[in-house]
Amino acid sequence: MMGKEKRLPLIIDSSDQLPSATILKRFPLPRNFGVAPDSRIEEGQVWKAPAGASRTKAFTIYRYDPDSGDNPTLDIFEVDLDDCGPMVLGALIWIKNKVDPTLTFRRSCREGVCGSCAMNIDGTNWLACTREIAETDEAGRIYPLSNMRIVKDLVPDLTHVFAQYAAMEPWLHSKTPAPENERLQSPEERSELDGYYECILCFCCTSGCPSHWWNGDRFLGPAALLQAYRWLADTRDEATGQRLDDLEDPFRLYRCHTILNCTRTCPKGGTPARRSPRSRK
């Protein structure tokens, strides 16, 4: 399907690698299976490419307008590839500028640093600014992050997941009086934080975690647990015991079943899953 990798086709080396063979693009379920009436997705409209566009590509995009009172829909947009940037975010910006100015999505840095453009592209969560249009399926499918309350179109309400993050008290807890200079760490101690400090809070992982889908109220989800571990692993933090006690709960921590969708999807190559077994000790 895509020819550029020399890697073993079935082994995924890093999360930016797309599956080379696709057996199923989605689980064989009706599209509105088990969905509450309010959230069912209906057919939307088709937005044709402007006349004269020679290289076009279609995107199916989830739309929801809170002011209309209508259910979400799937609109189809034909994008003029000669007129927009190479990334999926470019296509969205092109649509907003040239076709439908009401299309709503978050973006800021357009280079994979801020985490705001996270969405579900062709069935997996990723940053729209770092996924090439050329890598998407024909009729690329763009949904908001999975399992989120939707404010509008591709903008999810992240209040709850940010609250779960805040509940981890993601800052240094120390009873030792602050030293004159910095609190020092050896390079080895610092390297313990590799894979954990890089998180940009895009919530690709939490939104792609089936356990969080079913029990997101009480299960903290990978992004928050990664933060918890990031502070457990920090030699300067003195609240380790407290933090561990606060995690120990059949739902908060132990709903993680090591499904590992989180690691598969993290755009920063983090290993959100890794912290759980370590936190269990």
Binding site: R26, A36, Y143, S146, I150, G208, P210
Partner: peptide, 9 residues
């Protein structure tokens, strides 16, 4: 509305 999860992932 809740965005789809298992239906599209």
């Amino acid at each position: 509305p809740l965005s789809p999860n298992i239906q599209i992932y």
